[in-house]
Amino acid sequence: MTPEPQTVDLADTSVRDLNAALHALSPDTNMTAWRVLNPGGRHALAAGLLAPVTVEIMGHAGYYCAGMNQMATVVVHGNAGTGVAENMMSGRVEVRGDASQSAGASAHGGLLLIGGNAGARCGISLKGADIVVKGSVGHMSAFMAQAGTLVVLGDAGDSFGDSIYEAHLYVRGHVANLGTDCVEKPMRDANRAELFAKLAAAGLAGEVDVGAFRRYGSSRLLYQFHVDHAAAY
């Protein structure tokens, strides 16, 4: 039986009170379902959660929604502003609409699923989380991405994967151009399996053909300073 959700209406409650209530939950709380009404694009909604609860935000969220998330599931029934799920450690964040720039920036773990498009710098400095974008991503996405995966069902903008380290990038559509030190790599069985697993986790198993994707990653030429590579920048 799904528990009756705790409802917080931001028309008459502050973001501070909402977050304080969510932070007060212990990992074994039975108040696992929350619904936030009238979010009105406010910032830092459900930021810093650290319990396995589900928070449904019934509208648009501002900057840093679900920032530094641990364990929680946060669903935005609308668009999300800059830095949604930034530095997420674990859990799951879903944006049903579009996400602004720096979605999933520096995230270490968990899954960020974006139903629409993501703006510039999606997955910048990524450190281990998985990001699945059903639409397209803007320029400089996966900039300096260190670990984790970025899966894009649509297209990728300019300078994709610039200065990338060890993150895995999969794009089904067109990549405008690759950034410095980012190259296309062959799709091997292990890659197909990884991609399938990420898509499955995002609830897209069977809906999308793994064979339609191309893989990108680091050429590792710039891992060491070398005078002959100075012109790469």
């Binding site: 830092a44 930021a47 810093g48 900057y63 840093y64 720096s102 920036a105 710098r121």
Partner: peptide, 26 residues
Amino acid sequence: ACRHPDWTGPDDLEIKIAELREITDW
């Protein structure tokens, strides 16, 4: 990196500070 990945300029910084305060309950 020399630039923060998810904010640029004073208006963003204000929102970033507010986020860190929220996460640490002020």
